Amino acid sequence: MKKKISVLSILLFIFCLTACGNKKEEDALHLGVNAIITEIDATNQSITVKDYDIEDDILGSKCTIDCSKVPLIYCDYDTGDVEAIDFKDLQPNDEIILSIRSSEIQRRKSMDSVSCEIEVEQIQLGTQRLSIDK
Rank of each mutant, 00 (worst) to 15 (best):
K109I: 07
L17N: 14
I118Y: 00
L130A: 04
D81S: 11
D66N: 06
V49S: 14
E95V: 15
Y52C: 04
N93T: 15
L8E: 12
V49W: 02
L11Q: 01
I96S: 15
S131K: 12
H30K: 15
L130M: 13
F13H: 12
K2D: 13
D57I: 11
E25S: 04
F87Q: 12
N34C: 06
I73Y: 07
L8K: 06
G21C: 11
V120E: 09
I40K: 04
I5A: 10
I105P: 00
V7T: 10
L125G: 03
S68Y: 07
R108P: 00
K69N: 03
I118T: 04
K88L: 14
R129Q: 02
K24Y: 08
N93A: 13
V7N: 12
Q91E: 09
K88N: 10
I47R: 04
D94A: 13
F13E: 08
T127N: 11
K24D: 05
P92D: 06
I100R: 01
K62G: 00
K4V: 14
E121M: 01
T43I: 15
I47N: 04
Q106A: 13
S9P: 02
N93L: 12
D76R: 01
Y74W: 04
I36F: 11
L59T: 03
L90T: 08
P92N: 02
I100E: 02
G21P: 04
I123G: 07
Q122F: 09
L59W: 02
I100F: 03
D94I: 12
H30I: 15
K69G: 01
V82K: 01
R101W: 09
R108W: 00
I10N: 05
I36W: 03
T43F: 05
S68E: 13
E83K: 00
K23E: 07
D57P: 13
V70Q: 08
S131C: 11
K69S: 11
E83A: 09
I85C: 00
E26D: 12
D56C: 11
M1H: 13
L31D: 05
V7M: 08
K109A: 15
Y74S: 08
N34D: 06
Q122W: 08
F13V: 03
Q91M: 09
D133R: 12
M1Q: 10
Y52I: 13
I36L: 11
D78Q: 15
Q91G: 15
D53Q: 05
E55Y: 05
K3H: 14
L90N: 05
G21M: 10
D86E: 01
